[in-house]
């Protein structure tokens, strides 16, 4: 007779892979972060030094960079949610065929490489780019609008554009699961469409919103290319600094400490956002229904 597996046992291989692929490198980072570098021999020297962590907490540049990543990620997530909801909710009302088309259109930008998109944005937003050229031609401006490219505005516009599909998809799937009769019931009881949105759709899509916020926050806060290639002089990111420290500076311990700090801070914020969202009754109701 074939061996009978308990459902929980089926998770063992995956758990092992996760442990190896996630916990092990993190543990390694933690160990490296207390090592020292011998630049004469060019090797890492096992030590138990808190020096890198002291720097983490005392040098404001680290806090600034990590804080900037958090603000960037959170800002992008909030904007993506605000813009994403109308799109996602409209998609639930499309006929089935058009839903497929809609989701493909939504994802199309992701099929192009990030670099291609970045240079495309330069073509659109540049001093001699599409928008400035058009405005000039219309006589609306005489000098190009410089803030369009190489500014925090650009960074966030593009982060938003790049990550919006993830938010829309997450909310859309969540919204598709809402029983349409709940919306009808709300309308029937006197709710205008906007009331139905805030009282029914929004609460019952909080799980999708949470997934979207988590994803967009993580992707936007961890993006290095977009800020550095489109953000101009404002494009400093902790990721770029980690890259520098690991590579050129051969300061693996400091890089490890910064990586871990960034990871912990991002995780704390992401879990915080998701935790808050999932505490709402809407999310609980969705999970109960899923479990029943």
């Amino acid at each position: 007779m074939a061996p009978v597996f308990h459902r929980g046992q089926l998770a063992i291989p995956v758990t092992c892979i996760l442990m190896l692929g996630c916990i092990f490198p993190l543990a390694l980072l933690a160990v490296f972060s207390v090592f020292e570098v011998d630049l004469d021999a060019f090797t890492l020297v096992p030590a138990f030094s808190g020096q890198n962590w002291v720097q983490m907490f005392t040098n404001p540049v680290f806090a600034f960079l990590i804080g900037k990543a958090v603000v960037s990620g959170a800002g992008t997530a909030v904007l993506a949610a605000i813009i994403g909801y109308p799109i996602a909710v409209s998609m639930t009302r499309l006929p089935v065929l058009w839903k497929g088309v809609g989701s493909i259109v939504l994802l199309t930008p992701l099929y192009t490489g990030e670099i291609v998109r970045i240079y495309a944005w330069r073509v659109v937003l540049g001093s001699e780019g599409l928008i400035n050229a058009t405005l000039k031609w219309l006589g609306a401006i005489s000098e190009p609008l410089k803030f369009l490219l190489f500014s925090p505005f650009t960074t966030h516009l593009v982060l938003l554009y790049n990550n919006l599909p993830f938010m829309v998809l997450a909310i859309w799937i969540s919204a598709e699961l809402i029983d349409k009769r709940l919306i009808e019931a709300a309308r029937d009881l006197g709710a205008r469409p906007i009331d139905a949105f805030f009282k029914i759709i929004l609460p019952l899509t909080t799980p999708g919103l949470a997934v979207g916020v988590f994803t967009v926050f993580a992707l936007a806060a961890g993006d290095m290319m977009t800020p550095s290639l489109l953000g101009g002089t404002s494009g400093a990111t902790p990721m770029a600094m980690i890259d520098n420290l690991f590579g050129t500076a051969f300061d693996w311990p400091l890089a490890s400490a910064l990586s871990l700090s960034l990871l912990v801070v991002l995780l704390v914020f992401a879990t915080g956002f998701v935790g808050v969202l999932l505490r709402f009754d809407g999310a609980r109701a969705v999970f109960r229904r899923g479990a029943r």
Partner: peptide, 21 residues
């Protein structure tokens, strides 16, 4: 006249109670 402005209310076949309330 949209549903919300009709002096009519409905009891649905599947009840359609709001699960989060």
């Amino acid at each position: 006249v949209p549903p919300e402005r009709r002096p009519v209310n409905t009891v649905f076949q599947s009840y359609a109670l709001f699960p989060h309330l």
